[in-house]
């Protein structure tokens, strides 16, 4: 049974303080392969801080982030040597930013963008890199003929999909997404959601997705974590949290959704 398999990610008592204000307070959760964990909550609730700690961009003040990866011993992300962490992260982790421009090199062609993580990991065969890039363009539903075009010439939705291709090309164990559908119009968003669902299933990804869109959260994630003022106030199956919210704040959040 897969519930005895070690989770890819175990977070234990994670705490982060800014100017004596608790941005994240005693956060604990686990994440398995093939599982999507949604984090919802208002701006300033600590979602992004949590994501930055998980991404190796910001050290937590307390707590552990434990990674269990195939072919290596269990390790605590923030107790690794910096060099070791920086070497490890690009091979196991991808971050999808809300703004594709933060995750792409706009002056480098689509193919170059997709190939860069591979080259960082030591790939040195142009022909292979290029065919992998084209395959990934197809994977994210971009015409492979545009492999040499600059991302600047792409639409917002295409840029976001290119960013996803760049993130997933190294087959990371763990994908962190920060509002991946934010700022896109509804039809583009639908296409992206569909794509993400397919990729999660196809590559058995473990995903943490931060969003304030409950519809997106419900569609993509198996479990939800509701954050308020740096704490996790409610957690459970996505439909459980959204249909039977227990906490006052969660009820407010759920009842505040616009209805079409």
């Amino acid at each position: 049974m897969s519930d005895v398999v070690k989770p890819v990610l175990q977070v234990n008592g994670l705490t982060k303080v800014f100017d004596r204000r608790l941005a994240c307070q005693d956060i604990s959760f686990t994440l398995h392969r093939g599982e999507v964990l949604g984090i919802v909550g208002e701006s300033g609730s600590g979602k992004s801080t949590l994501l930055k700690c998980l991404a190796g961009l910001m050290p937590p003040d307390a707590g552990n982030i434990t990674l269990s990866l195939p072919d290596r011993e269990e390790c605590d992300l923030w107790r690794l040597e910096e060099a070791e962490r920086e070497r490890l992260l690009p091979t196991i982790l991808a971050i999808i930013h809300q703004n594709a421009r933060d995750g792409l090199r706009l002056d480098v062609s689509a193919g170059g963008n997709i190939s860069e993580p591979l080259m960082t990991n030591g790939h040195r065969h142009y022909g292979t890199l290029r065919s992998v890039a084209m395959e990934w363009l197809k994977n994210v539903e971009i015409d492979p003929a545009r492999v040499d075009d600059l991302p600047q010439t792409f639409s917002g939705g295409m840029q976001q999909r290119l960013q996803i291709a760049r993130g997933l090309v190294t087959h990371p164990q763990l994908v962190l997404m920060d509002e991946p559908t934010g700022g896109l119009d509804v039809s583009v968003q639908a296409k992206l959601l569909d794509l993400l669902r397919r990729l999660v299933r196809e590559f058995n990804l473990a995903v943490v997705i931060v969003t304030h869109d409950l519809g997106v959260a419900r569609l993509l994630s198996d479990r939800l974590m509701v954050m308020q003022s740096g704490r996790v106030i409610e957690t459970g199956l996505s439909d459980r949290v959204l249909e039977d919210p227990r906490q006052p704040y969660t009820q407010l959040l759920v009842s505040s959704v616009l209805q079409v």
């Binding site: 409950l214 249909e243 759920v254």
Partner: peptide
């Protein structure tokens, strides 16, 4: 029901 229909969209 309000909760339910809210999330469906």
């Amino acid at each position: 029901r309000g909760y339910l229909s809210g999330i469906r969209t």
